[in-house]
Nucleic acid binder design. Structure first.
Lengths: 185, 185
DNA sequence: CCAGGTTGGAACAGCAGTGTTCCACTAAGG
DNA sequence: CCTTAGTGGAACACTGCTGTTCCAACCTGG
């Protein structure tokens, strides 16, 4: 994790970003997309894609790193340490929802879980554990189960949003409501 | 839907079942498995597989039919019309969980949603609508959202079970508990 | 026992994706 | 202006999957 992509010349950084973003979009839509498809979506030749990412695995790695970075930002914005754990958890939901397609990649396992365990998933588990100690989260439910329920509903919310079956301002209240009720003691 | 596979000679029916079951297992594990992989898992030559299912689409169709059939059985066992809707919904959860890998196929969209809409998914939506009328299910939540929450948690429960991270007798109570709390008014 | 139904293996052509090389083109910076 | 980093396209070999054909072996019931 000592890459210094940020310091590369403008053009390179821009191209790299375009490819990673297109990869996220296309992979979320179909985990088995071809590299050619991703290159097209990025508005870039397949040759160029291979110049930045020698093979599929390298591109997937980059997508993984992107995921962890965006996850970390979301944690910061939700201020997980402020107030009681359940309220913090409900603050986190809309932030996670902003991750969009990354949620799909995370959930469908396109990004290897190992990447995420190394810092992406830990804060949420810690938050739930705090809720257990405080008593703001149902102690009858395993930490893993609570984490799973939150992720599952987030993925559902994103899928609904993406399909255009409901608007964000309709979805978020229902998401928060069902998560709240499910995990409350 | 006028196939008469049941009336075929013993050997043919047995082989056919073995292939479909292996397909469910392998496709749940990896939606992009090759037909050769499925044939191996079924303990059958690839030639034989092609004899029963000319191409991939035909096999997927068969898996879809299997899904609808098993779904219908589950609905019958749960007696969806007995008692109040929320209680019936909670009865349905363990029944659905018995579907195992089929849950994964359903959820990951390996089986085209159109197949399921034609009879697989309707009863659940109808049940939730009844719950809304009765008042046993939270009216603040869309029917679609409630259905989604149930499916998402079922999938989570099955995934946890399949990974061996928890036993069925630990999972089912938590599943029922979170579904109940989430959908209760 | 033996004829018909059933099977598996080998071999084939076709296709799509991958990763590579090479070369010509462009545009931005010194 | 002219160098140079960055790019895209064409072509290539290679791999793995698909769907097909053909044939030898096999049981299994009559």
């Amino acid at each position: 994790m000592t890459e210094v992509h940020e310091t590369e010349t403008g053009a390179r950084a821009r191209t790299r970003r375009a490819i990673v973003e297109a990869a996220v979009r296309e992979l979320a839509h179909d985990a088995a997309t071809s590299l050619g498809q991703i290159a097209d979506a990025a508005g870039v030749g397949r040759t160029t894609l291979h110049r930045y990412f020698p093979d599929r695995a390298a591109l997937l790695d980059a997508v993984g790193s992107e995921t962890v970075a965006r996850l970390t930002e979301a944690h910061a914005r939700a201020r997980l340490d402020d107030g009681d754990a359940r309220t913090a958890l409900l603050r986190l939901c809309p932030e996670y929802l902003l991750l969009g397609d990354l949620l799909t990649l995370f959930f469908t396992g396109v990004v290897p879980d190992t990447v995420l365990d190394e810092g992406g998933a830990a804060p949420l588990a810690a938050l739930v554990a705090r809720g257990h100690r405080e008593g703001s989260i149902d102690r009858e439910l395993d930490v893993d189960w609570v984490v799973g329920v939150v992720w599952a509903q987030l993925y559902l919310a994103w899928a609904t949003l993406r399909e255009g079956q409901a608007a964000r301002h309709d979805i978020v209240p229902m998401l928060v409501r069902t998560v709240d009720k499910a995990v409350a003691p």
